[in-house]
């Protein structure tokens, strides 16, 4: 079987600064992996590197998505190949309507798969359903992308995009940060509705609380650019109770 996402000995950084220092991670279809770890460990960097953000340079190692070399693709090609990154801080883009943005995204993937593009009418129907599912008012479809959305609304908007795009692997970067309990549950329900034997998730979080709602198959601790410990859901509970101290890690604020 081909692994869905396979990361081997990944070294990467930004502007001469090494952040990932030999990261290994294998994810099979249908699995949910949680990544926890102290600030500055490289969790967000992993998302940026996998998505291909400008400025992040891979110096060693490899990453494949469904057997294809992920690191060799353009950002938009990775998305079309099935990678979805839910942003920790989704970007506000005034002047571009949320609806147009999502329609262009979904149709880009459809064109790449050789499918017919959705018409405006067809897409509107799908978008309305997804919008209801994440409990956003329908007028959020007409507004500028994330324009004036609260923190929680932005995260719901990310999940709405995920539902519409139907990716094969979803990387959720601290999707729970800044959410109240109700919003957390809505977001988790949205994620759970998309769980399937063909789709995998990487859930980056600081808190075990999210994992009460999204049950992970595996929990990994990322520290200093490497996965230093892997386990099942009980590992997250242990961290919640004891902190990272038992791993020999003390909390260190990242130097600015």
């Amino acid at each position: 079987m081909v692994n869905m996402l396979s990361i081997k000995n990944l070294h990467a950084g930004i502007e001469e600064k090494n952040i990932l220092k030999g990261l290994d991670l294998t994810i099979n279809p249908g699995e949910v992996h949680a990544i926890m770890g102290p600030n500055g460990a490289g969790k967000s960097t992993l998302g940026y590197v996998l998505s291909g953000r400008d400025g992040y340079e891979v110096t060693e190692g490899e990453a494949t998505l469904n057997g294809q070399d992920l690191l060799d693709m353009e950002i938009e090609e990775r998305a079309v190949a099935g990678l979805f990154l839910a942003f920790q801080y989704p970007v506000e883009i005034p002047g571009v309507s949320n609806m147009v943005f999502m329609k262009e995204s979904v149709n880009a993937a459809r064109i790449a798969r050789g499918q017919e593009e959705y018409t405006a009418g067809e897409f509107l129907k799908l978008a309305k359903e997804a919008c209801k599912q994440v409990q956003l008012p329908l007028d959020f479809l007409k507004r500028g992308v994330n324009e004036g959305f609260s923190g929680g609304e932005k995260k719901r908007n990310e999940i709405m995009q995920m539902i519409l795009l139907q990716p094969s692997i979803c990387f959720l970067d601290e999707t729970d940060s800044g959410l109240d309990v109700d919003a957390l549950k809505t977001v988790a329900d949205g994620v759970n509705s998309q769980r399937s034997p063909e789709r995998s998730f990487v859930v980056v979080t600081h808190y075990q609380r999210l994992l009460d709602y999204i049950k992970p198959d595996f929990v990994h601790i990322l520290a200093d650019g490497k996965i230093i410990k892997s386990g099942d859901a009980s590992l997250a509970l242990k961290i919640e109770n004891e902190g990272y101290g038992f791993l020999g890690l003390n909390y260190v604020e990242e130097k600015a």
């Binding site: 400008d54 353009e74 938009e76 942003f87 989704p90 883009i93 571009v96 943005f101 262009e104 995204s105």
Partner: peptide, 20 residues
Amino acid sequence: ESLYYLLTRGIPRSQALIML
């Protein structure tokens, strides 16, 4: 940053630049 966001959703670069 806006350009990166659109690209991560699979929108081709030329199209994303037009949209932005």
